[in-house]
Amino acid sequence: MGFLQKLINKARVKSPYVFHFNSGSCNGCDIEILAALMPRLDLERFGVKLVGSPRHADIMLITGPVTEQIRPRLQRIYEQMAEPKFVVAVGSCACSGGVFRGGYNVLGGVDQAIPVTAYIPGCPPKPTAITFGAYKLLEVLSKAFGVAEKKEKEEVPFDITAAQSEGVAET
């Protein structure tokens, strides 16, 4: 991997542009995505920026069970995105169809129409869960691109009982 490519990959992980697409969702997931970008959680501190055009985006967040009318448009928009592109299915509907499984006009999950990189379940997932999912995706991407930062020390799994006995975590 050349130096320039490495730089580009590093920049890519540091500031992913996301595009939000609604494929027939109930709006619950959409407001939670927006809430994740709003002052309280501020997803922008990871460099994430919401853009309005698929051509600018690296990551597409999709909500909803994919209705029949939306499917061709979803596929066309997916093709419009520049490589490398990643798709995140947000919400139970986008993961598997959710409550709309069995409806005559839904496909049941984004992965029935286009390939999906990550799934964030929940109906709707909390903004914290969306932040966590986005963070995890970035971690995986930086490993895949070979630009992961070297860990200085081994990560210790968070021990809830120890934390509780010290009074750090709430019971």
Binding site: G24, T67, F100, G103, Y104, N105, V106
Partner: peptide
């Protein structure tokens, strides 16, 4: 309209 039509009314009958 109609892009978000998910067929809820039919689904509800089952």
């Amino acid at each position: 309209i109609g892009y978000n039509h998910r067929g809820i009314e039919k689904l509800a009958e089952s």
